[in-house]
């Protein structure tokens, strides 16, 4: 059954984010002959459209004021695109912007949103959204009593489509008023390779015992190659101030799907697994043989990280 779909895109440095491209891939598969539109707001929006494989129409505004996310401004623009596209399904990233836009747009359109979905399917013509609940201990499947159906989508939930970008562009309004204003900004990101882009993640947890131990994990990442490997952390480690929040993996942190994930002194709570269970190979290093993490791992070492990790580093150097 053909359905029109609108994807709320996001730009970083003038390029569509990977989740934007993934949602477009998902939308292209779900449209079943309907149209796929993408909204692009901020500097470089019109040019970024070319990269949006899967979309037939771009709804764009280049105004750099949109680079600072303000929900009320974005809602106006996305609302205009929704009117023009006549979409029955709206896909939004589970991001800073999406977490705010999803529920507010749903309320303004007298409909509902399912947050943080990991798959969306057409079941006999009906849209169904699957999402983890209870911290990842359960999967909930929802349908919508109202239209449009709105879903925010977790990173890496769909495959990117190939092919050309949209053939036509519709202009969205310039940013309007916002009651909330941004007065300051502090960037806190790790240098170099970003966690989500790394093909290897070396993650540490509360069992490391001290922030200095993350230096050993950094040494391991360096040995594996700083162009491939990044260091992550559990929330327990982040909450203790041992590693920056930008490196947190999990339900309330980043979702990563590397080829290789080392969970070192991490117990494997469902909320942590929500961020790394899509890894191709998971290696668990934990001194507790009963730790939950071993239930998710392909390979495991039962032992103290203090002796195991230096041995792994030495072996990697051979």
């Amino acid at each position: 059954m053909a359905r029109n779909i609108l994807v709320v895109g996001e730009l970083v440095g003038g390029q569509p984010t990977s989740t934007t491209l993934e949602m477009l891939g998902g939308a292209a598969a779900l449209a079943e002959g309907g149209t796929v539109g993408v909204t692009l707001l901020g500097a470089g929006a019109a040019a970024a459209a070319a990269a949006c494989a899967g979309a037939s129409t771009a709804y764009a505004n280049d105004d750099a004021a949109y680079d600072t996310f303000l929900g009320e401004q974005w809602l106006e623009a996305v609302g205009a695109a929704l009117d023009a596209s006549n979409a029955e399904l709206v896909l939004i990233a589970q991001s800073t912007a999406g977490r705010e836009i999803g529920p507010r747009l749903a309320h303004r359109r007298n409909t509902a949103v399912a947050m943080d979905c990991t798959s969306i399917v057409s079941d006999g013509g009906t849209i169904k959204a699957n999402r983890p609940a209870y911290g990842g201990n359960a999967v909930a499947t929802y349908s919508f009593a109202t239209s449009p159906a709105i879903a925010t989508v977790r990173a890496k939930s769909f495959e990117v489509a190939s092919g050309a970008g949209p053939s036509n562009t519709v202009a969205l309004p310039a940013p309007g008023a916002s009651r909330v204003s941004v007065t300051g900004r502090e960037k806190v990101v790790a240098e170099g390779l970003q966690l989500q882009d790394a093909s290897i993640v070396v993650a540490g947890g509360r069992g490391l015992g001290a922030s200095e131990s993350f230096r050993v994990l950094e040494e391991m990442a360096t040995t594996l190659g700083r162009d491939k490997a990044a260091v992550g952390a559990s929330r327990a480690a982040v909450d203790l101030g041992w590693y920056p929040p930008s490196q947190q993996v999990g339900l309330t942190g980043k979702v990563v799907t590397p080829d290789l994930y080392f969970a070192i002194a991490i117990s494997g709570a469902s909320q942590h697994m929500a961020g790394c269970s899509g890894s191709k190979v998971l290696v668990a290093i934990n001194r507790d043989a009963e730790a939950n993490i071993f239930g998710f791992a392909k390979y495991g070492i039962v032992g103290d990280y203090k002796t195991v990790i230096p041995a792994v580093i030495a072996e990697l150097k051979k």
């Binding site: 409909t111 990842g136 201990n137 929802y142 349908s143 998710f296 039962v302 002796t307």
Partner: peptide
């Protein structure tokens, strides 16, 4: 407006292969 159709337990991974050896090395 949002209808819960189903609540289920997600599939878990297979069995872990523990690395043999008497020492960390």
């Amino acid at each position: 407006r949002l209808k819960l159709e189903k609540l289920s337990t997600p599939p878990r991974g297979g069995a872990v292969e523990l690395m043999p050896g008497d020492s960390p090395e």
